[in-house]
């Protein structure tokens, strides 16, 4: 009996069904880093939702709308990219949709008032994004590694977008800034930087 035949015997003895639910094994690390980032920010900063009392729900709705959409789309992309031979171009392109909305609102703001980029809390915002994005990214990488991604750069990019989106969701309730220019510079650019890092690191971190 050849080595390959022995291997076939061993593998077939383990059976055709995986031991755990595929979806929950994938979702658990994503939900875990989501909880970690949210609780981490809550333990560090005071005044969650104070900006809502001062400025109403619209600023937070815009930030959360963008970030939740990005997290959902990037998690979906990770799921699809982790399944070999599944077409992934549309889910990859789909992750650009939230950014298109931001660009449209930014253009509107530019025409009406000029871009509102400045904000007193930009340092806290950048720090929160810099600390929380890698945590979310790590969770996404962990989740993706359990699947079988064959396009590692694209998967790394999706993980980076997920990490940035999670960080934004966690910090947004504390953010009193209102401008779309601010959102572009202090949220979108750090998220894109995290995505670029994921693109670069994907082949190293996701190899299986």
């Amino acid at each position: 009996m050849t080595d390959t035949e022995l291997l076939l015997d061993r593998l077939s003895a383990e059976g055709p069904e995986p031991s755990a639910s595929p979806f929950w094994r994938f979702a658990a690390p994503l939900l875990g880093v989501f909880a970690l980032c949210t609780l981490g920010i809550a333990a560090t900063l005071d005044g969650a939702f104070d900006p809502v009392e001062r400025y109403g729900v619209m600023p937070l709705t815009a930030k959360w709308g963008f970030a939740f959409a990005l997290v959902f789309l990037s998690a979906s992309a990770l799921w699809v990219l982790g399944r070999p031979a599944r077409p992934s171009a549309s889910v990859t392109i789909g992750m650009a949709i939230p950014f298109i909305f931001v660009a449209a609102f930014l253009a509107l703001e530019f025409l009406q008032t000029g871009p509102v980029v400045r904000g007193a809390t930009w340092r806290t915002c950048l720090l929160a994004m810099a600390v929380m994005s890698p945590i979310g990214f790590a969770g996404a990488i962990f989740a993706a590694r359990w699947l079988a991604p064959t396009n590692l750069r694209r998967t790394g990019l999706s993980a980076g977008l997920f990490g940035g989106g999670v960080a934004m969701i966690a910090y947004s309730p504390y953010c009193p800034e209102l401008g779309m220019g601010y959102m572009t510079v202090f949220y979108c650019l750090p998220i894109l930087a995290m995505a670029a890092l994921g693109w670069l690191l994907g082949p190293r971190l996701l190899r299986w």
């Binding site: 390959t4 291997l7 076939l8 593998l11 383990e14 055709p16 995986p18 595929p22 094994r25 982790g82 399944r83 070999p84 031979a85 599944r86 699947l147 079988a148 064959t150 299986w208």
Partner: peptide
């Protein structure tokens, strides 16, 4: 073969096996 076995949960039921396997 080991990879196919370990990643068999990434094959959706009803989808053709060959493209997944060759990927």
């Amino acid at each position: 073969l080991i990879a196919i076995h370990e990643k068999r949960h990434t094959l959706d039921p009803g989808r053709p096996v060959a493209p997944w396997m060759f990927a």
